[in-house]
Each structure stands twice: as C-alpha cells, then as structure tokens.
Amino acid sequence: MTNQPYGGGYGYGGHGGHGGQEPPGTPYQEPPGTPYQEQPGTPYQEPPGTPYQQPPVAPYQQPRSQPQAWPGQGYDNTYDPYADQQHTQQWQGQTWETQMQPPVAAAAPVTPDPVQVPEPAPVAAGEPEPEYGPATLAGNARITDAQRARAEGRSPVIEPGMQPALLTAVLGLLLAGGAALGTYALLVPLVVLQGVTAAGWFRLNGMWPARQSIALGFLGALVADAAMLVSDRSPGVILGTLGVWVLLSLVLQLRSHADPDERMYGLMATVVAAALAIAAGGYLAADADAVVVGAVAVAAAMVVRALPVATVASVVIASAAAGGAGYAVGGMSTDAALMGVGAAVCALVGHRVASYDYPSRFVHFTAGVALPLAAAGPVVYTLGRVFG
C-alpha cells in the first residue's frame, strides 16, 4: 500500500520527491469528478438540473438592479450589446399576484366629453317677471319683493292692499254708526280699534311676542276711556293718562334683563304704542257729528287709496273722495268737506306708516287697518271743535 494518487501521474501526493508541488510548466487540472470545466471561448453554464434560485425577497417587491434567470434558462455572462434590444423580460409562470387577482384588460383610450353649454331658456313675448316667496322671521333664501325693488331702483314700500282697506272702512263705519247711536255704542268699536293699534304697532316694529308691552298700551287706552267717561269726555284726561303711562313704560323696561340697546328700543315702542292707543280715544272726546264725518271720510279715502293707481294720483283722488264723503255726510257744508280732507290726510299718513318693506300679512291686517283711524282720532276732535 502506497500513498501515491490514482493513475500514477503527477498528483497531490509526494511522488518523485517533490513534496506535493507541481513540476514547473505543468498546467493546473481539476481532480477527476469536478463538474466545472472552463475552456477557452466556452461561456459559463450552470450544472445540468440545477436551476438558478432567486434569493427570497419581501412580497410585492422585485429586485431591479441585477438581471434574473428563470427556470429552464441558463445564465450567459457573454457580453452582447444587442441583448437589450432582442429580448424583453416576460412573466411566463403563475405568481402570487396573478393567482389572487383577475387579469386587467388594457384600458381603452379616454376621450374627454365635449363641454355641454346650457341653452338659454326661451323668453316669452311678455317677459313675465318671476314670483318671489314672502319673507319670514326665520329667513328666506329667495329675494323678497322689497330687495328686488331696491335693486331695480324702485320704492321698497309694500302697501297693505284692498282687503285691509275694506276692514278699515268697515271699522270706520262702525265708529260713525256708534257715534250716531250714543256714547256707549261708540265705545265698543273704539276699544277694538285701540287693541288692534297696540298689537299692530309692536308687530310693525318686529317685536313679537311682546305681551306685557301690548297689554300695558291697551290698558292705558282703557284707563283713558274710563277717565273720559267719568269726566264727561274731557280731553285733558288723555294728556294725563299719557304722562302716567310713559312713566310705567319706563319702569317696565328698567326691570328687563335685555341689553341696553334692546331695552331702549322696547321703551320707545311701548311708549308709542300706548300713545297711539290712547290718542285714538279722541273719537270719544269729539262731538258725534264730527266723529261721523271724520270716520266716513277715512273709510272712503282708504278704499280709494287701495285702487291700482299711481301713488301721487291715488293720494290726490283719495283726499278728494274724503272731502266729498264729508260734504255729503256733514249736511252739504264746506266745513264738513274740510274736516273730511283733514281726517283723510292724517289717515294717509297712518297708511304710509303701515306700508313698509317687510311683507307680513299680520302687520297689514293689524297696523294697516288700525293706524289710519288711530292717527285721525285727535284731528277729528280738533277740527270738530274748530268748525263747531
């Protein structure tokens, strides 16, 4: 048994006394059984049956810095300048993404829709103006008639209309009829007029509900009426009642916990409401004939004023109608005609006050009805005393 390698050639053992060194000039050869052999001009090939294994990577990530070899393909390290143009990387097998998700079809080219320009609405021959909803305390998103009137340069005042005018005429005729019948018959429509006046003034100023102030003003009117009845219809009672009620209104507002500005506004509204309701008691202090002439004249003026006529012409025609009604009721006298015109002027002022830029039917059916008659009350008493 020797330590020489198989075949007796130059090997790794200590043959020939070389001590395991290769003789000079002898090329190196792989031991038998080594699968790798490299020859000049032969590209590198992987051993048969040993595919290239891609190192494990995280899901959804692919290494992009190194070229990849796929199963069944060898790796050729021969430089080929046209390799990038001849071959492209393709997925041949099933992967996790292709197994779990359906294939995505190629997206069709998107063509932008043409811009649709709305066609203008056809304009009718009359160009009718759009209707606008009424304004409310909670607010209305649509423009009101008053705002539209301001935008067009017109007056934003909304007049009560024919229905409140007819109610005013009815109440005026009741006053005239009550005065013709007697003092206590006159008192019934007068109390109604005073209550509607107090409530309408507060609603006209946007203060609602204001039960205490309305009740205070109405109570002042009742006290004034009672004092006139006791004092044989003395007009001085009206002034005394006004002074006392101004003081009571001041005390009432001082007890309020509202802001100072709101308390001042409430004080003025309360004083004016009480003053108007108490001043309407002038019908009770005036002579019966003066009440008949003045109430009928106001009724005629309000109906004519509500006709669809221009404002200036309507005022002139209403005053003339009031003068004619006074002349007819007052015994065909010039004094009665003048009294009728004077009462109509004051009634038109009250009508103008009730005409405002907030179209509320409640205001029109309270302040629009009562203010013309209430404003004419002191004038009826004064002119009745002047013309006898």
Score class of each variant (00 low, 15 high):
249 S>V: 11
291 V>I: 05
70 W>C: 11
53 Q>I: 15
60 Y>K: 12
134 P>D: 10
274 A>Y: 01
251 V>M: 14
180 A>K: 04
281 G>Q: 00
31 P>K: 09
210 A>I: 07
50 T>H: 07
52 Y>I: 11
319 S>W: 13
332 M>D: 14
236 G>Y: 00
204 L>G: 04
298 V>W: 01
196 V>P: 01
125 A>W: 13
112 P>M: 02
141 A>W: 12
4 Q>S: 13
219 L>Q: 04
47 P>L: 15
53 Q>R: 14
341 V>A: 04
204 L>W: 03
183 T>G: 04
241 T>M: 05
244 V>N: 00
26 T>G: 09
25 G>L: 11
167 L>T: 10
369 V>T: 08
174 L>R: 03
349 V>P: 00
361 R>C: 11
217 G>E: 02
233 R>I: 00
364 H>E: 15
36 Y>G: 05
273 A>P: 02
99 Q>H: 13
194 Q>R: 00
288 A>R: 01
203 R>M: 15
14 G>N: 14
76 D>L: 11
84 D>L: 11
379 V>G: 02
177 G>D: 06
186 L>Q: 04
127 E>H: 13
383 L>C: 01
306 A>D: 03
258 A>R: 07
310 A>S: 09
121 A>H: 09
172 G>S: 03
30 E>M: 15
230 V>S: 03
372 P>V: 08
171 L>Q: 02
161 G>C: 10
170 V>G: 13
170 V>C: 06
263 R>C: 06
269 A>N: 09
356 Y>C: 12
276 L>P: 00
188 V>I: 15
143 I>T: 15
135 A>W: 05
387 F>I: 07
281 G>D: 00
15 H>L: 13
152 E>F: 07
160 P>N: 10
127 E>A: 15
82 Y>Q: 15
304 V>I: 13
54 Q>F: 05
57 V>P: 02
362 F>P: 06
89 Q>R: 14
92 Q>Y: 07
315 V>S: 08
292 V>M: 09
89 Q>T: 14
336 A>N: 04
296 V>T: 14
269 A>L: 06
96 W>F: 15
168 T>Q: 03
376 A>L: 08
293 V>L: 02
282 G>W: 01
55 P>Q: 14
338 L>Y: 09
117 V>S: 06
358 Y>E: 12
71 P>K: 10
386 V>Y: 05
47 P>R: 15
328 A>W: 08
241 T>F: 00
325 A>D: 07
226 A>M: 02
51 P>W: 05
372 P>H: 02
301 A>G: 09
327 Y>V: 04
276 L>G: 00
195 G>C: 12
